[in-house]
C-alpha cells in the first residue's frame, strides 16, 4: 500500500530504471493511497509527479515471489487430497 500527502492532483509513475528513462503511469488523480500488486520479480522505482512537472524522491520496491517449485508441489498435494475427498464421497458407503 502506497500513501502520500498532496494538496493537488498527482500521477503515480513506475519504472525499472532509477533514472525513469522508461515509465508507466499507474494512477492519475486526487487520491492519497494506491494498492500496488501484480508486479513480476525485480526492482521497481516509483515516484509522484504533479501537474507542474515536479517529482518526488523515488521509492525503491523489490519484488520476490514465492518459489514456483514449492507452489507446484503444493498444487500436487492439493489435487491429491481433493481427489481423494471426491472419490470417498462419490463411492459412498461400501462397507454397510
Amino acid at each position: 500500500m502506497l500513501e502520500w500527502q498532496s494538496d493537488s492532483p498527482v500521477s503515480l509513475e513506475i519504472s525499472t530504471s532509477p533514472d525513469f528513462s522508461k515509465t508507466k503511469q499507474l494512477y492519475a488523480g486526487s487520491a492519497h493511497r494506491y494498492f500496488l500488486s501484480g508486479l513480476a520479480n525485480g526492482d521497481y522505482y516509483l515516484r509522484l509527479k504533479t501537474l507542474e512537472g515536479q517529482t518526488s524522491t523515488p521509492l525503491l520496491v523489490s519484488v520476490v515471489h514465492q518459489s514456483l517449485n514449492r507452489a507446484l508441489f503444493l498444487v500436487a498435494i492439493g489435487a491429491l487430497v481433493t481427489l481423494a475427498v471426491v472419490i470417498t464421497i462419490l463411492r459412498g458407503a461400501r462397507d454397510e
Partner: peptide, 10 residues
Amino acid sequence: LFPAAIMAIF
C-alpha cells in the same frame, strides 16, 4: 504460473 496464486487454489 503466479506462485502465490496457484498455491491459493487448493
